[in-house]
Design a protein around this nucleic acid. Sequence first.
RNA 1: GCGGGAGUAGCUCAGUGGUAGAGCGCUACCUUGCCAAGGUAGAUGUCGCGAGUUCGAAUCUCGUCUCCCGCUCCA
Length: 510
Amino acid sequence: MAASNMEQIVSLCKRRGFIFPGSEIYGGLQGTFDYGPLGVELKNNLKRLWWRHNVYERDDMEGIETALLTNRYVLRYSGHEKGFSDPLIDNRTTKKRYRFDHLLKAQTPEVLTLLAEAFNLPADTDGESLADALLQEPEKAETALKAAKVIDSADGKPGDWTQPRSFNLMFKTQVGPVADEESFAYLRPETAQGMFVNFKNVLDSTNRKLPFGIAQMGKSFRNEITPRNFIFRVRELEQMEIEYFVFPGDDEAVHESWIQDHMDWWVNEVGLSRENLKLFEHIKLSHYSKRTVDILYNFPTLGFDELEGIANRTDWDLGSHSRAQDTLPLSANTAEKAMKNEHSVEKLTYFDDKTKKHIVPFVIEPAAGVDRGVLAALCEAYDEETLENGEVRVVLRLKPALAPIKVAVLPLKKNEPDIVATAKRIKNTLMAEGNMRSVYDDSAGIGKLYRRQDEVGTPFCITVDFDTLGRSNTGDNTNEGTVTVRDRDTMQQERVKIDDLLPYLQARLK
RNA sequence: GCGGGAGUAGCUCAGUGGUAGAGCGCUACCUUGCCAAGGUAGAUGUCGCGAGUUCGAAUCUCGUCUCCCGCUCCA
């Protein structure tokens, strides 16, 4: 059983130190969250699994880590500077909000003509161009929209429109000591561009042949209009992205194989159940995409929503960042729509030894949200189990590889110095020799200690008792040198020799 | 940005003008031989922030900030 509503997860996360609201003592900052002591472990574990699967366990991948700040031209030629914003407008009467360009496209030709006239534009100017023009002069636009009787489809009547406003979804920041118009940079809204602009560097330094890919994990920033739903939509997020380069023509099959591979990864390694996952085929594609398929997870409260997007970006990005584009064999869409590049000093091409020709590879991009992955893992693992005695046990059934704490070592009695010393020694050994994040806790009775560990997903608890010391009250000392190991999911216990603990646990934590 | 809801202990919340509360959690000690046990003691709050009304404000009024839900957006 997974979590049935998000509040359960939010509450547990704060109480036990997984995730806190950002800047909380100053009233918070919408769209930011801080990872606590357990959260950082969980998140790092998820990232480690991803890196291992996508980089180490394949023969065709290289990792990279690029700067969050980029030359402003990177995000100009990628299309973000122009396209990564949403013009919005409100109707005061119906309280509805619309994408401004969508609103205009839905109007009759007569209305559009009136608007065009008001702005001294040709009578047949289309909705999108009109939207661009009107956004330049919002006050004048407000008057013109009312005069032209722009209709709100919600009630079929002319709306009481506000000024149209443009929301740029990228954060801008100042670079260097002199604050002028030329000295700004954008915080990247996706890690992808760092991989495209380093395409040649990776190719030249590794001698890779197609097909091969570049992987990167890192922070991205999006000035979301409405951050919502805990860490699902945030303004500062972390991504796990791959740009996989292939010969044009191979792209469709490779795209399909990444979709299947990553669907399986979420199930087999993160532990999400297949019935809580599904694929979503994008109908309306972004400017660079030939096909985009999302992997959706069934989040509590939200329902199915995006966990990972896997896009066929064609040769759009490499083509867009290249100089002398008219000399390149670009696909029709890219050749037609890409901005003419007047700043790049490089052709982002690949020399094919077989045909002896320079080509522009196509790119398949699996892009997942780390924070969304953490949230999905938490939601999936959350369980409230009713025990035989009627009590309810909260347990996070995380995959052992994801669990923030692998082993808790507990003393049956904390006022018995030999038990305490033995427990602490075991804990230190597991950490030092087994590299297992382990903790010692004696701040409550044994039952409560178990439940605390259940709640944060610790797979195993080790308990040191009098038998361990050879001081059994029954006089039977056959268990000397052993401890009990309790399994999180079954609550079953097993006596294991201290000397065998490391291999015993390692075998079960895989 | 508009509409609605909310902000009181770590968490969940009660408290409609008169001493700041409960449950759980937390700390210490006692007890306890394995699944949130019991006892005793204890700590924890500018009642989001600011102003106003009042003898007196968590409570009423105004302002403000933040969060949540919906609309819109989500490459």
